[in-house]
Structures are given as C-alpha cells and as structure tokens.
Amino acid sequence: MNKKYLSALVCGFGAAVLTTIPGVQSIGCCLLAPVAAVLAIFLYKKSHPDLLKVQTGTGIFIGFLTAVFAALFASGFEIIITYITRTSDLVASMPEAEKVIKDMKLGPAAEESMDVLKQMADEIQSKGFSFLYIFLITLTNFITYSIFGILGGLIGTAVINKRNQPG
C-alpha cells in the first residue's frame, strides 16, 4: 500500500477511535482532526527517510485523506454504537426540543420539522437505525473533518519542513 494512504489510514482510524471515548472531545476540541493530519504527515516523512521536504500539495492531500478516513470510521462507529444502544444524542435531546416547540408555539413549519426529528428518533429507538440520521451524521462528519484535515495538512507541512531545515 502507498505510504501516503497507510499513514492517513492509521491516523484517521486513531482519530475516529478517540471521538468515541467520552470526555476526549472536551479536551481535544477542534484539534483532533488537525493533530491526526499532522501525525499522518510525520509518519509519511518518517517512512521516507530520503525525503528532504514534504511538498505542500502532498501535505494537503495526506491531511484530507486522514480526515476522510476519520470521517468514515467515526460514522461507522456511531452507526454501530447507535444500533447497539438504540439511542443517540438526537434521542436524548428530543424531550427538551419538544418542550421548547410546545412552549413557544412556533407554528406549523417548526412542527413539521419536529416531526422529521421525531421520526428519526423513533426509528433509532425501535430499529437502532435511521437512514436519514446516518446520512446526516456521515455528511457532517465528511465536511467538518475534511476542512480541519486540510488545515492540519497545511500546518503539518509547515511544522515538519521547518523541523528538517538545517540551522
């Protein structure tokens, strides 16, 4: 396997595992995906001892790839956890959301969108699976992780190339 893909796969998987551990995100915050990308570039550079400088384009690509793998695995883990536990953050927040809609009398549009959420929550509780919910979490994971992975790729390239500069 190309070492670009391998380092991205390893770090993406690691980042995805960390997202499932409660409390890690409160420490890692928005730094999880970028740190994984930086680490992936570091591993790529380590696997190519003859490489003097990581090109910016390569760094961005590795960062993006790490993010894609992280999003893929994180979504997979969330699907499995939701299936096993038959609950999710959506189900947990439903009673409060329902109360707000009821109290504030937001009208038919809000109630319609509430129905969509309710349907998703019901499917999760009964079957442990909701296609719309899975689609939404996968989409949001891919978008946010990709953005932060690319940024991590840029920062990683800058940091690792400076590290290898003589003097």
Binding site: T19, Q25, S26, C29, C30, A33, D89, L90, S93, E96, A97, V100, I101, M104, L106, A109, A110, S113, M114, V116, L117, L136, I137, T140, N141, I143, T144, Y145, F148
Partner: peptide, 21 residues
C-alpha cells in the same frame, strides 16, 4: 432558529469540532 431540524443540523455540524458544553 427554532429548536428543530435546522438547529439539530447546525448543532451536529459543530459538535464534530467542539464538545459544546
């Protein structure tokens, strides 16, 4: 923003990069 679908989507979007406590 009412606490419904859009709110859920936005919250979910940013929850990937922040704990949102």
């Amino acid at each position: 923003i009412d606490h419904s679908f859009l709110s859920f989507l936005l919250s979910r979007f940013y929850s990937n990069v922040c704990h949102q406590e």
